[in-house]
C-alpha cells in the first residue's frame, strides 16, 4: 500500500462495531441467514399483504374438504384438516413466531441486563443475591419452567407467552452481562469517570453497558431462535396459544390424526419453523464470529 494512501485516511480508523460489520459482510452463511430473517420479518409484519385468505377461514372445494398442495391455484399449499388455507396460516404464523421470538427475547434481555449489570457493578450482597437467583432459574430445564408458568393460565395470550419466555431466558443474559461488567469495572475509563465524580448509574449506562452491546446482540439473536423453537414446542404440547391461532407448533399437533392421510400438514409447518430458526441461527453465529473473532468455531 502506498504511503500517501495511508496518510489520506482518517487516523481515527474504524470502531470495533464497524470492523465487526465488515467481518459480517464477508460471511456468506450469515448473509443467507439475514436474508431468511428479512423474509420472515416482512411476512410477519405484513401478513395481510401476502396472505390470500383469512387464517381462520374454512374452505370447502367441490370435490373434497381438503386440498393437497399444488392442486388448486387458490390454495397453493393446500388446505388443512379443517379446510383452512395452509399458506395463509403459515404466513400469519410467521407473525406469531416473530413476535414471540423478538418480544420474549426483549423481556429476557431487559431483565437480564438490569440484574446482570447491578450484580456485576455493585458486587457484594447484591451480587450474591442476584447470582443465587440466576442459579435457581438455571436449575430448571428451560422449557419446563415455561410449561410450569403457562400451567397457571387456562388460555395463555401472546403477552403471557412473552412474559413466560422472558422469565425463562433472562439468567443467560444476566450471566454474560455480569461477567462483562466485572471485567470492565476496573478499566481505566471507568476509573476516570469515577474520578470525575460521575454517578454509578451514569457510569453504568453511559460507559459500561455500551461496551457490553456486542455479546448482548449475539446472545439475543440466538435467543430469538431458541424462543421460536420454544413457542413451537409449547404450542405442540397444547399449552401455547389456544386455537384457532395459526401457530406453527399448533398446526402440527392439530393435524396429528391426519399425518398419514395429509402428509403436507406434518411437513410444511415444521419446515417453516426449521427454516426460520435456521435463519436466526446462521445470522447469530455470524454475528458471534464477527463480534468476537476469538470465539470463532
Amino acid at each position: 500500500m502506498a504511503a500517501d494512501e495511508v496518510k489520506k485516511r482518517k487516523p481515527a480508523g474504524r470502531s470495533p462495531t464497524q470492523l465487526a460489520i465488515r467481518r459480517l459482510k464477508k460471511n456468506r452463511l450469515a448473509l443467507v441467514g439475514l436474508a431468511v430473517v428479512m423474509v420472515v420479518v416482512v411476512l410477519g409484519v405484513l401478513p395481510g399483504v401476502f396472505a390470500q385468505h383469512e387464517p381462520a377461514m374454512q374452505y370447502q372445494t367441490e370435490d373434497a374438504w381438503q386440498v393437497a398442495p399444488f392442486q388448486n391455484s387458490s390454495h397453493p399449499l393446500g388446505t388443512d384438516e379443517l379446510g383452512r388455507d395452509v399458506l395463509s396460516r403459515l404466513i400469519y404464523g410467521a407473525g406469531i413466531s416473530l413476535r414471540v421470538g423478538v418480544i420474549g427475547t426483549g423481556v429476557a434481555v431487559f431483565i437480564g441486563v438490569f440484574l446482570g449489570a447491578i450484580a456485576g457493578y455493585f458486587a457484594g450482597v447484591t451480587d450474591w443475591v442476584v447470582s443465587r437467583l440466576t442459579d435457581t432459574f438455571f436449575a430448571f430445564p428451560s422449557l419446563l419452567l415455561a410449561i410450569g408458568i403457562l400451567a397457571v393460565f387456562e388460555k395463555p395470550t401472546e403477552t403471557i407467552i412473552f412474559a413466560a419466555l422472558g422469565l425463562v431466558g433472562w439468567p443467560g443474559v444476566a450471566r454474560i452481562v455480569r461477567g462483562q461488567v466485572i471485567s470492565l469495572r476496573g478499566s481505566e475509563y471507568v476509573l476516570a469517570a469515577k474520578a470525575l465524580g460521575q454517578s454509578s448509574q451514569w457510569i453504568l449506562i453511559r460507559h459500561v453497558l455500551p461496551n457490553c452491546m456486542g455479546p448482548i446482540v449475539v446472545v439475543s439473536t440466538l435467543m430469538i431462535a431458541g424462543n421460536i423453537l420454544a413457542e413451537a414446542g409449547l404450542s405442540f404440547l397444547g399449552i401455547g396459544l389456544p386455537p384457532p391461532s395459526p401457530s406453527w407448533g399448533r398446526m402440527l399437533v392439530d393435524s396429528k390424526d391426519q399425518w398419514t392421510t395429509m402428509p403436507w400438514m406434518g411437513v410444511l409447518p415444521g419446515l417453516a419453523i426449521s427454516f426460520t430458526v435456521l435463519g436466526f441461527n446462521l445470522f447469530g453465529d455470524g454475528l458471534r464470529d464477527a463480534f468476537d473473532p476469538k470465539m470463532q468455531a
Binding site: 431462535a225 423453537l229 413451537a232 414446542g233 405442540f236 407448533g249 402440527l252 399425518w259 406434518g266 411437513v267 409447518p269 415444521g270 419453523i273 426449521s274 430458526v277 435456521l278 441461527n281
Partner: peptide, 11 residues
C-alpha cells in the same frame, strides 16, 4: 440445532 425435535419425530 434449528430443527424442532418433535418435527423430526413426525417425519
Amino acid at each position: 440445532v434449528s430443527m424442532p425435535v418433535f418435527w423430526l419425530g413426525i417425519l
